[in-house]
Design a protein around this nucleic acid. Sequence first.
DNA 1: AACCCATCTGCG
DNA 2: GCAGATGGGTTC
Length: 704
Amino acid sequence: MDLIAEQPALAGLAPRRRRRPPVEPLADDLPVAQVVLDRPVPHLDQVFDYAVPASMAASARPGVRVRVRLGRQDVDGFCVGRLPASEHDLIPLRRVVSEEVVLTPEVLELARAVARRWVGTLPDVLRLAVPPRHARVEADVAADRHTDDVAAGRAAPELPTEAPLWADYRGGPAFLRRLAEGQAPRAVWQALPGPTGHTWADSVAEAVGVAVAAGRGALVVAPSATELAALEHALVPVLPRWEPGTEGGWVRLSADDGPAQRYRAFLAVARGQASVVIGTRAAAFAPVADLGLAICWDDAHDLHAEPRAPYPHVRDVLALRSEQQGCALLVGGFIRSVAAQRWVAAGWAHPVVATREVVRRRTPRVTALTSVELAREGPAAAARLPGPAWRAARDALERGPVLVQVPRAGYLPAVACGMCRTLARCGACAGPLQIDAPGAAPACRWCGRVATDWCCPECNGVALRSVRVGSDRTAEELGRAFPGVPVKVSGAAPGVLVTVPDRPALVVATPGAEPTAAGGYAAALLLDAAVVTSRPALDVAEQALRSWMAAASLVRPADAGGVVLLVGDAAPVPSQALVRWDPAGLAERELAERAELSLPPAVHVAVVEGSRDAVSGLLARAGLPAAAQVVGPTPVQRTGDGPGEPSTSPLLIEPEGERQVRALVRTPWRWSADVTDGLAAAIAIRSARREAPVRVRMEPPEVW
DNA sequence: AACCCATCTGCG
DNA sequence: GCAGATGGGTTC
């Protein structure tokens, strides 16, 4: 500080000091700016002080983007505060990039907590939280600004004074009453299916309406654009969409909408013009003013897990936010995630579930057709579409459309040797072979090479048989089984259908691509159920039930003839949960099992990956609490379900130290902060010393 | 990434 | 004894 102030007097005499920027007078008031640098290296994850030139005295406000000199290079950052003085000799800010306040104190606090919880750096989290600046949008909005004072906010529609949809749920009215009173209740919601009449989105919109009526903002995070579209529709009677020049209303915040639209919506929120946000996962950080309610819909959906470091999960980001900002929290879906069950079990959140009787009235009749039950069908029991399923579909087609869920897309996504049943693989890269269309030659799923003259390496067989049937082939088979009935396919490749008309038709869909049916489906067939329950993953049961219930929730209630058939020998536990429509029961059971085995989320688990030396070095320096149990390190094995090391390349003999290993740190939740803080400190030290990098992830889903 | 500084190293 | 190399740490 002083150095700069005295510089003019010394400038001529000083023995050729390093190029100083031209000396500018500093701001009179609070001449120090605290800056968080946008650098990915952990040891730069701290607040740096810079001098504020008088010319930036007003614009260098906390929350704006700034550009500063760090050592030799110019770096971007955020101003996060102003101080009267600093302990350091300061150099001035280079410039204020934009006067727009894009990082509010609340979001900064949230980002700090997220960085801490997931052992990441603050800049990494801020890159998720604050969308990239779009200068043209900013210019447009700056032009609007002058009209703001003139433009009157549009008249708000009648806000609901009561919430009839939530009366169906035990705990629902209490949740909304507390929300309306400005409290911060937390709930885990098991949504009723809504093929006709009111849907989950209507319930969400109703809750948003209560928050808005209480004079507060709301935030709804959904997995994808499909759910956002449903929410937009449901919000129509509740709240208008925000328009430039108005106050209040909702905006949609999603990276899919493109940088310009996304930034425009973000600015509307940051400037307090829009009071409600609906969006996908990054929207969990949206700077909603006076946030009263945060909602995570379908929290078990894998899109809620951020794929970029430090891999935070929407459910938990919103949970942190509810604690920090004192807002209500509503997390739910058709199923109850095991993670949410932990909150319920700990009494941290209240369950919001319909009574048994209401559930019965609103859900279809579900039957699991196992091969045991089908024994009397004889050999036909093994058929992919056994007799009872075929008959149920035929009957249902008299009454309306029938949904057919198939776990895999394509035609024959996996084939095997017709003699010994060894999975057929590509001769070049060992990827699995598939057949794309009727009569097509088998081709590699990874490298695309066509396998002419395939010959089984085990038994020299040359004939292929199908081991997996995809949605295209299923549609073909159904077309033959039900002549005259239209067959539609919905999925990523042919295109996702949003809705189908209320007419008899077979609708074949892959999970997540199920269209809604205007009057609800008359039936749903969930085929190849064992495929979904045999994945070697910790969350198989949860994900299987999620996938099935998503489809079953589109079917009419049993009273209206709605039936669901689970076909294909699925694991009994999730099957029973579906038949009894008891997702909470499954979650309880799963959590108890994980507690028994010390698996997440019953315990806190950090996964540390890197070279053997790096992992052991990190763990040695992390100062782990006594309660922490380290498992491993063990070599990381290739997963084998994607293109891996191509075997065409020369075999690389990696030195032992270079091989990637993985260690788990398991700790009871009450010690989790000690583990994450210890790991973060050790990572910062390793980073400053240029030691080999280590990747740390919390409860990654695919490790188990 | 570029710099500073402390320590080491090779040579007279 | 000293120039140049090397390595670890800092960068407001």
